[in-house]
């Protein structure tokens, strides 16, 4: 898994790629929690994620819950098919704020 972050007019774009599994999810959680503690608006681009397991999904859930408490934005963007299928399995596609593209999320 690779994590890249960049600031786009005050919104942090987190771009994930590769496999988000047990061996990487702790790193993802740590990065997302740092951003949540800084009360940043965050868009997570998932277009290049080839596999995500439930430990990766757990990190996204925890960050989303914290964003809601902080009243900041936390958006999942450009879901790859593997990510979409896993979110649908747990019906989380009805919970997260999801956009078709990172650009749309950054504009919104």
């Amino acid at each position: 898994m690779n994590i890249e972050t960049r600031d786009s007019d005050g919104i942090i774009l987190v771009s994930l790629s590769g496999e988000v599994d047990l061996s990487h999810s702790a790193g993802l959680r740590k990065r997302l929690m740092e951003l949540m503690f800084e009360r940043r608006d965050v868009v997570v681009d998932l277009s290049a994620v080839t596999y995500v397991d439930s430990s990766g999904i757990a990190g996204l859930v925890e960050a989303y819950q914290m964003a809601r408490k902080n009243n900041t934005r936390f958006v999942l963007a450009a879901l790859s098919d593997p990510v979409r299928r896993v979110l649908q399995l747990a019906r989380l596609d009805r919970v997260f704020t999801i956009t078709d593209s990172a650009e749309a999320a950054l504009k919104g």
Binding site: S55, A58, V61, A90
Partner: peptide, 19 residues
Amino acid sequence: HTDLDETTIGIMTRLKLEV
């Protein structure tokens, strides 16, 4: 089998219960 933190374990457990 893992050294995941308890918050993550709790979410993963409840996710599977949802599934």
